[in-house]
């Protein structure tokens, strides 16, 4: 059989990879098997080096306090510098960039969102009233929901 990595040499090594209880068998040649070892060691080095750079100081290269915390999700600037991941919309405070967005802008139709949320709220209230057997009040709420949904559909059709 031909090596499944380079597709050139004769495969003499059978590698078994285990992930998620799945067994995957790969046939490879000795040359490709050697390169796989190098890649593995290289990637471990890459992972570790930036952590040592920032670990022993309280401010980063730009002078920012690395203990600064995002109030919304709790991520610290230190964590951000390691992960380079936004965990919520407010983590954007950590980003230092001169770039300015120049593309699509969301319309964020708040009015429509408001109506949807209002319907949801009233539907919850309706369930509660029925459970409490307050049918007269429930009928009133039911009609209100019907009207709101009607308006919503009309808006959709005209827009």
């Amino acid at each position: 059989m031909i090596c499944q990595v380079c597709g050139k040499n004769e495969a003499t090594i059978c590698m078994v990879k285990m992930s998620n209880n799945n067994k995957e068998t790969i046939y490879i040649c000795p040359v490709c098997a050697g390169q796989m070892d190098d890649k593995l060691i290289g990637s471990i080095n890459q992972l570790l080096s930036p952590m040592f750079d920032t670990f022993f100081s309280n401010s980063n290269k730009l002078g920012h306090d690395i203990n600064q915390i995002c109030p919304t999700c709790g991520q610290t600037r230190r964590e951000w510098e390691e992960s380079r991941t936004l965990n919520c919309k407010d983590c954007i405070q950590f980003l230092d960039s001169d770039e300015i967005h120049n593309g699509k802008i969301p319309k964020n139709n708040k009015e429509e969102l408001y109506v949807i949320n209002l319907i949801k709220e009233k539907e919850g209230h309706l369930k509660q009233l029925i459970a409490e057997e307050k049918y007269e009040e429930a009928a009133k709420i039911r009609d209100e929901i019907k009207d709101l949904k009607g308006d919503f559909q009309d808006d959709k059709q005209t827009s």
Binding site: N87, K89, L95, S97, E99, H101, N102
Partner: peptide
């Protein structure tokens, strides 16, 4: 989708994404 969800959007940086390389558009 935008009619139902309010997107995370920043005036300067645009659409906000987990990975900074996707921020903007």
């Amino acid at each position: 989708l935008e009619k139902f969800y309010s997107y995370a959007y920043h005036e300067k940086y645009g659409y906000l994404t987990s990975c900074p390389t996707n921020i903007g558009t």
